[in-house]
């Protein structure tokens, strides 16, 4: 997860980048596969009792 160097950011390479601009949809499919594996990691940290966690998350107003 080394941060990209500030001066090397253009263009923005993505693992799922095709060389030609893909029609909306095909790039999206590759991204779906990537995000599905991310979901498994998210499952591991998500509060097990989501409902009571969300209900208990009450803040006072601020600015």
């Amino acid at each position: 997860m080394s941060p990209r160097q500030f001066d090397q950011r253009h263009p923005h390479p993505r693992p799922d980048d095709d060389s030609a601009p893909p029609p909306a949809g095909s790039g999206a499919q590759a991204r779906d596969t990537e995000v599905d594996s991310l979901l498994e990691e998210i499952d591991d940290v998500l509060e097990t009792n989501a409902e009571s966690f969300v209900r208990g998350f009450v803040q006072k107003g601020g600015q």
Binding site: M1, H12, E34, S37, L38, V45, L46, A50, F53, V54
Partner: peptide, 28 residues
Amino acid sequence: ALDLQWSDLRPERSIYSRLVAADAVERL
């Protein structure tokens, strides 16, 4: 819950930290 935990500052609970670990977001 995912929305709230997105911004949890604890790396072990943060959804954003999962995206960083997977190199799914750009860092500056």
